[in-house]
Design a protein around this nucleic acid. Structure first.
Lengths: 85, 85
DNA sequence: TAAAAATACTCCATAGGTATTTTAT
DNA sequence: ATAAAATACCTATGGAGTATTTTTA
């Protein structure tokens, strides 16, 4: 479980679509799809329901997102103090 | 800046030695040395003073450690809930 | 039947290793 | 003089890409 995976996940939630999130992250749709799939494989359940219109969070996915956001918040705090890269 | 780098950093602080920390992390001393050097390169200052006896935190390193610990704490919370891997 | 996501590959950057050298007391 | 860290170099894993196929409303 990497920070990048959590950031990708959050982007997908915010865009409601892998395709749109991939654009905002400047990576390809398949790369993002693989990254999300890898997270789901790690944790053993679906974070998203897939559909024609894009993706929506599952109930468990919503809970997981809370944890992900707290991790990313702390890293953002670190990076805003010390600069990313 | 990866979570793994922050975990490596914390291990070095706790052992007071790269060699000992590397053992506890089951990686080689040079790999750990490179990982720490990479973090220092990213942030632009020394986290550790190196010496015959091992390493000690610099003042700035001590402050940075606080941020690192908060990130890792949140990830530990996530992983204890969802299992690592 | 058309978007959105998933799959199937290919490629390359980097995390890790071993061997060795340098540093600091 | 010696233990610890740094450097040099090599290898292999996985993150990213393009092309294509499969889903689902």
């Amino acid at each position: 479980m990497t920070l990048q995976q959590l950031r990708y996940l959050i982007a997908v939630v915010e865009k409601g679509s892998m395709t749109e999130a991939a654009k905002s992250l400047f990576i390809s749709q398949p790369s993002l799809s693989n990254a999300i799939k890898e997270v789901e494989r790690n944790i053993g359940f679906r974070i998203f329901n897939r559909g024609r219109a894009g993706v929506t969070l599952t109930a468990k996915g919503m809970e997981f997102l809370g944890y992900a956001r707290r991790v990313v918040q702390q890293m953002d705090a670190l990076e805003s103090k010390y600069g990313d890269s």
